[in-house]
């Protein structure tokens, strides 16, 4: 069924209006009863104002900084210009997520290839891989903090453990499930092992990896935020954790909204990249209406 674009937009906006309206009425006590007390639920307008304030304050602080703006200090949490601004929190979470994604993907691709091409290695490590994958990664966070400190690397490590397994399993599958006909054809065309790798295994594995791009990017950010939440001096997770520590529900919701908007933005970027890289893929059956 194909829905008109404007109709969809109107319906989507309606959901937001109903939800925010209920929240507003409940918290403001418009009809005499306050079924959503502000102390526990805050109020939509307060949250909106807080978000605007955070961005205005942050921007003003950077713009009116008396010291010379030095971008090399942009990640230092005690910097006079950037320290504790919302921009710095966003930047730090982005960098942690990006590093977790890149390092996790690289390691996942290499290990996936190695395991797929060497069945003995795969068989030997199989129970250990399964064991680590079954482990809830949150329990590793304190250990990473012990090893790597409270800076960005303990968050990168946590994100890494999440991204690595997704990419690893997908690449492993992708290399092993190359169509035998395509492989036979490539060999009959005279491809050497190296050429097979470049023209057959590699694109096949990448296509599997890209099909899980949304999941792995999402997990990279989850790793970063959870890591920040458990112990850090900056980042969106830190922002939410600090607000919670002072029963500042408005601050918690403001942090959550910023985080959600940030994830939506990253997801949109991933979709752009995906459309560019997977042009050769037939559209999924569910989209062929």
């Amino acid at each position: 069924m194909l829905i008109a674009r404007w109709k969809l937009l109107v319906l989507q906006a309606l959901v937001a209006i109903v939800a925010l309206g209920t929240w507003h009425i409940g918290s403001a006590g418009t009809f005499g009863i306050t079924f959503l007390p502000k102390f526990f639920f805050s109020a939509p307008l307060d949250v909106g104002n807080r978000i605007v304030k955070m961005f205005v304050d942050g921007t003003v602080k950077i713009a009116t900084c008396s010291e010379p703006l030095d971008l090399s200090r942009i990640l230092q949490t005690n910097d006079a210009c950037f320290g504790k601004t919302v921009w710095q929190h966003l930047l730090i979470t982005s960098i942690e997520g990006l590093l977790a994604f890149v390092i996790g993907s690289l390691a996942g691709v290499m290990m996936g290839f190695w395991f797929a091409r060497k069945p003995l290695v795969a068989a030997v490590f199989d129970p250990y891989i399964k064991m680590f994958n079954a482990l809830p990664r949150v329990v590793l966070a304190p250990i990473f903090m012990l090893w790597l400190g409270l800076g960005i690397w303990s968050k990168v490590a946590l994100g890494f453990t999440l991204v690595f397994f997704i990419v690893f399993f997908n690449v492993y599958q992708g290399v092993r499930e190359v169509s035998p006909v395509i492989l036979a054809n490539a060999r009959m065309l005279g491809m050497s092992e190296r050429q097979l790798f470049r023209h057959v295994y590699w694109p096949s594995a990448l296509s599997w990896m890209f099909s899980s791009l949304h999941t792995s990017v999402g997990f990279a950010i989850i790793g970063a935020v959870v890591g920040e939440y458990l112990g850090s001096a900056a980042g969106l997770g830190y922002l939410i954790q600090q607000a919670e520590g002072t029963f500042d529900v408005t601050g918690v919701f403001a942090g959550m909204v910023i985080l959600a908007a940030f994830v939506l933005f990253v997801d949109w970027l991933v979709t752009l990249v995906e459309n560019r890289l997977l042009v050769w893929k037939p559209p999924a059956a569910s989209q062929q209406v």
């Binding site: 169509s179 006909v181 395509i182 036979a184 054809n185 490539a186 023209h199 057959v200 694109p203 096949s204 296509s207 050769w280 893929k281």
Partner: peptide
């Protein structure tokens, strides 16, 4: 080949 053997990418 009988089946499709082109590289889809």
């Amino acid at each position: 080949f009988q089946q499709d053997a082109l590289m889809p990418w």
